[in-house]
């Protein structure tokens, strides 16, 4: 791999830089020569039909799936994410909210946030950990996501929407440089969707965010640059209005 100085400006000034990423499963190309680049502080919405490779892209960024070919660089091109595993990538500052909300059902809500809270991740630190000032931070986050009243409840007893929020709360607790949010409003009521959009925009003030979503209304409400994925590569990029007017995007979405 070339030395960082020789890399183009796009790399050295982006938080996340994907180039020519290809992933295939048993001959099926989930990602096909995908390229994407995300500036510091940007919020990006990613849309695309099922099977377009959105989740696989997240898997590649977070280290769950290794790409067959391609570059995945983080933090001005200083870190090659394809060489790191999930835990290392999370510690580097990439947080992920899953499509299917995954919280720790057998832990209380505050423990869920506690586990996500930025801080020591090693066995030794956590064996002798004492709650110095964490409670305050947890309380803040729980207020932000509107779950302060439930802090002692087991996460498994939450409703679907509440779990989505808890996961977002856990993301905030991680305080990552980059947040990957997969379908944050799936299964939410309209009111919940609006709240979530506000929450995400809040977060985007001081974080870089990628949101994957099907819900066009929600994406419109976010009002950010949109990337359309189709069959594992980028089909179109631009504002939501530009993308909605794109003939190929309409073709892909409305049938061929």
């Amino acid at each position: 791999m070339a030395a960082p100085v020789e890399w183009p400006r796009a790399i050295t000034h982006s938080l996340l830089y994907l180039d020519g990423v290809t992933v295939s499963f048993d001959g099926f190309r989930a990602l096909n020569n995908l390229s994407l680049d995300l500036a510091h502080g940007e919020m990006r919405a990613i849309i695309g039909p099922n099977g377009a490779g959105k989740t696989t892209m997240m898997d590649v960024i977070t280290g769950k799936t290794r790409p067959d070919t391609g570059e995945v660089l983080f933090d001005n091109g200083s870190i090659d994410l394809t060489r790191e595993d999930e835990a290392a990538i999370a510690q580097l500052g990439i947080g992920r909210k899953f499509q299917r909300p995954t919280v720790f059902d057998d832990h209380t809500i505050e423990d869920n946030v506690l586990l996500a809270l930025k801080g020591g991740r090693t066995v030794g630190r956590n064996l002798f950990w004492r709650s110095n000032g964490d409670a305050g931070r947890i309380g803040d986050i729980l207020s932000t996501i509107g779950l302060a009243a439930h802090r002692r409840r087991l996460a498994g007893t939450l409703s679907h929407g509440q779990k989505q929020w808890l996961e977002i709360g856990m993301l905030i607790a991680q305080d990552p440089k980059l947040l990957l949010v997969d379908e944050p409003v799936a299964g939410m009521t309209d009111a919940e969707t609006m709240t979530t959009a506000r929450l995400l925009k809040d977060i985007a003030q001081d974080h870089t965010v990628i949101v994957v979503e099907h819900d066009m209304e929600f994406v419109r409400r976010l009002g950010v640059k949109v990337t359309v994925l189709h069959e594992g590569s980028v089909l179109a990029e631009g504002s939501i209005d530009e993308v909605s007017a794109n003939a190929r995007v309409i073709e892909v979405y409305l049938g061929r």
């Binding site: 999930e86 835990a87 999370a90 899953f98 720790f104």
Partner: peptide, 13 residues
């Protein structure tokens, strides 16, 4: 309960 979720939080499972 959720091994890979724990990993994505940065814990070396």
């Amino acid at each position: 309960d959720a091994e890979s979720r724990t990993r994505f939080l940065g814990y070396r499972v």
